[in-house]
Design a protein around this nucleic acid. Sequence first.
RNA 1: GGAGGCGUGGCCGAGUGGUCGAAGGCAGCAGCUUGCUAAGCUGUCGUACGGGCAACCGUACCAUAGGUUCGAAUCCUAUCGCCUCCGCCA
Length: 437
Amino acid sequence: MLDLRYVVENLEAVRTRLCRRGDAYSASLDQIASLAQTRREAIINGERIAKELNDATAAMAKIADKKSDAFALAREKNRALGDARKTFEREQAEAELAIQDLLLGIPNEPAADVPDGRDETGNVVVKTWGAPPKMDFAPKEHHDLGTALGILDFERSARLSGPRFSVLFREGAMLERALATFMLDVHTQEHGYTEVYTPYLVKDSALYGTGNLPKFGDQLFKIAGNEERTYDLYLIPTAEVPVTNLHGKELLADDELPKKYVAFTPCFRAEAGAAGRDTRGMIRQHQFDKVEVVQLVRPEESDAAHEALTRHAETILEKLGLHYRRMLLCAGDMGASAKKTYDLEVWLPGQGCFREISSCSNFGDYQARRADLRYRPADDAKGKAKPRLLHTLNGSALAVGRTLVAILEQYQQEDGSVVIPEALRPYCRGLEKITRR
RNA sequence: GGAGGCGUGGCCGAGUGGUCGAAGGCAGCAGCUUGCUAAGCUGUCGUACGGGCAACCGUACCAUAGGUUCGAAUCCUAUCGCCUCCGCCA
């Protein structure tokens, strides 16, 4: 969410910058400006009357005889003031509610160094690491490989849960678990992240905090039932949601920053609107595992933290020897909450293309304002510093299922077996290769 | 699931209808001390919004949302959360 005062005072500049996303949100911005004026007038009027009433009330407290005519008269007079105040307060509250609704629907401003572009064709290749593995045969796609090896099963998962799920057997299941442990170890031991285990169900308020609600509810699984509950629960679409909101409504001390968390969780996505896309295999599922890194940092540190965090994700790919490239997303292809995003795309020889395996974003204070993430800066020369909003960042490091896919496809052999990357072998009881049984 | 209790400032903790934004303590900050030494003394010290060039002024905020009242941290209702006991359970 953008700051109201900032929007009102920089209306045209905001309009121009949002335009880069493909929609200037002009109508919303104009409504916000107008409502802000209404709100300001209601505040001024309401406060004037509140002052009057407070003075009158204080005077009443001094009347010794509460049964006197003077007291009764004052009471009558003040009743009207109280009603008037309530009217203005209501007007203010209504304006604020409407403003809030509009602001929640407005995306973040793209950073200045984000390229123009309306969709993924506007994204820019920043770098490419490694090379496609040499294969003197036609590479297979992961689902054919995995099914033949008996480690992937999409028939039974369909029977159990419908489309967009999978069952993993033996080395498949082991690899999933090994990858998660491997990634967690690297991030906690080498990159300084604190491992955290969170709930997989969250209140809607947490989803407002990260920006998944109110606009993208169709991507979420909402938990049905339970009449007695007064709030909605959702399955998390990513660990970003519980982890980013972890310190919501707290006031963090300067010396506990930056907060760096890594969490391994399942992710649940409705994939509405993705009908027909990636229907085969493990690329796009309703449930998948992901190791997510999240940072809460001082505002002036977020750009550097974004570069570092992206490197942390890349490290995993490099340790696994997986050929990939880094993309800088253009303004039109970024998520609504982000101000700058790098996607890491891993090479899939079976599909003959790069596929997203990680998305690393800097959100500036956009999520922090929604989720109420603040810290008190260290005292400056002028004395005690005011609380400030933090900046939030996160990235997949990595999507475990897609990493498994990439390993199957990049490490496949002509006979259909799959070599296990060396870095992963200690997590696989030393196993070097997956072969057909 | 049943019974009871509790939610106050960064933290702890007073306060049960009328100058209470809220005593006291801790932490922090500034200064003074330097023979009580992981010390002592003094002062200062919330957040948001609105107005003002500014000093500053005003309003709101005692879990959250409503309500009663001339007036609510204090009374009422609902909700959320935590604690204790019983039951159940992995």
